[in-house]
Simulated assay, not measured.
Amino acid sequence: MGHDSQGLDAVLADFARRPNAPTSDDRLRDAMRLCIERGLDRLPLPGSGETLTRWQRLATVGGIDLSLLKLYEGHTDALAILRELGCEPFAEPGIWGVWAAEPPSARVLASDRQGDQVRLDGRKAWCSGAQQIDYALITVWGGKDQQHDQPQLVAVRLDQPGVTIDAQAWQAVGMAHTASVDLHFDNAVGLCIGESGAYLSRPGFWQGGGGIAAAWYGAATSLARSLHQQRQQGRPDEHADAHLGAVDAALYGASAALRDCAYWIDAHPREDARLAVQRVRAQVEMAVEQICRHVGRALGATPFCRDPQFARLAVDLPVFIRQSHAERDLAQLGQLLTRRGTEDWSL
């Protein structure tokens, strides 16, 4: 048996390593453009007194389709950033994205600054939705002639010479359609947005991070509704009922945490929201993981195989929620609490 297994490994090695073909769904762009045409991208700004309303819209889109949510969240985040920093780089409307990942192996350098205009060279990784959008806000770093220890936010047009997309590295099955591709810049033009370091230091940075948790929550509620509907229509099953009870408890705690965080942000719009947001992201992440497990065990294979929306959400959500950095985020939360000295956990 062992010898046969080794033979199979060798015979099927190339098959096992075959690449997943990169995909791009033009219907995503059409759906996003429809949202813009109907004004559905004009959300209340974070900290404006209607943060919960903003998060409710993100949750709604997340419950419809997470690939669309990825475009929608990036676009609405970009609009909020531009408003917060008082910039309007391009007059023509379009779909925006925000790309601020900074892996050590991929960095874009800015040089030859003339006023707000800079020249861009290098590779930007994790550029979600680049195949469907028009403009992006990206973080870049000073070239040899302008060294900075803080990233500079730059607005770029994606249809210009010197910008190329490489989708070959994207092998995901979940979140396949809004591929987080690599972008290569070769003497491309960008416009500086705000001062160096403004992207990370503004209050909206952490406030926006709470919106991601709302999107996680929205996708989980959509899966939960499938279970609820099945229990209303299906035969008596105490095990499935127990799964539904566990799902409801998880959703109740996560929704309460999201509302509390949104109210705190609106009450303290200029304060650092990091602690509040890291708490709510941890709470919602744990709830979502429980919900995915309980819904799957209760419903079995049928919706994964025969319900297209459920199947997409079920495969997309585990990938999308990895925007969390798991134990690293929890460690940062613990460090924040440690530095506070004491914490009041009383009711």
Rank of each mutant, 00 (worst) to 15 (best):
I212E: 10
R297W: 03
W170I: 13
L333I: 10
G142W: 01
S196W: 14
G7L: 15
P44K: 12
S255D: 12
A311E: 05
M286Y: 07
V280E: 05
V288G: 04
A80C: 11
R297F: 01
E37Y: 07
N187D: 15
D134G: 00
A59D: 08
A331L: 10
Q232T: 02
K144Q: 05
P46Y: 11
P161A: 15
L244K: 03
R339Y: 08
Q6E: 14
L137H: 01
D344P: 01
G208A: 09
G7R: 15
P104Q: 08
Q309F: 02
E289M: 15
L336F: 05
Q309C: 03
I165L: 15
A130Y: 00
L191V: 15
I64R: 04
Q283K: 14
W264N: 02
I138N: 07
E195C: 09
R202H: 11
F185S: 05
G74L: 06
P103G: 09
S196K: 08
A249V: 00
L333P: 05
G204H: 07
L120M: 03
R306S: 15
D112C: 09
A110E: 09
N20R: 15
L153M: 12
D25T: 06
D186N: 15
I64T: 09
F310M: 02
R274W: 03
G253R: 14
V277H: 02
D266L: 05
N187M: 12
R328I: 05
R339G: 00
P93Y: 10
Q290V: 13
A59Q: 08
T164Y: 06
A287L: 02
G63N: 03
E289A: 11
S111W: 01
S180R: 14
A224Q: 02
L200D: 12
A326P: 00
I95Y: 05
Q114I: 10
Q152D: 01
S201F: 01
A16H: 14
R312L: 07
Q147L: 10
G245D: 14
E92C: 01
Q152N: 01
I36Q: 14
W170Q: 12
E50T: 02
G334H: 14
E37N: 10
G197F: 06
D307M: 01
G63R: 01
A100F: 12
G97K: 01
R33W: 04
D14T: 14
S201M: 06
E37V: 14
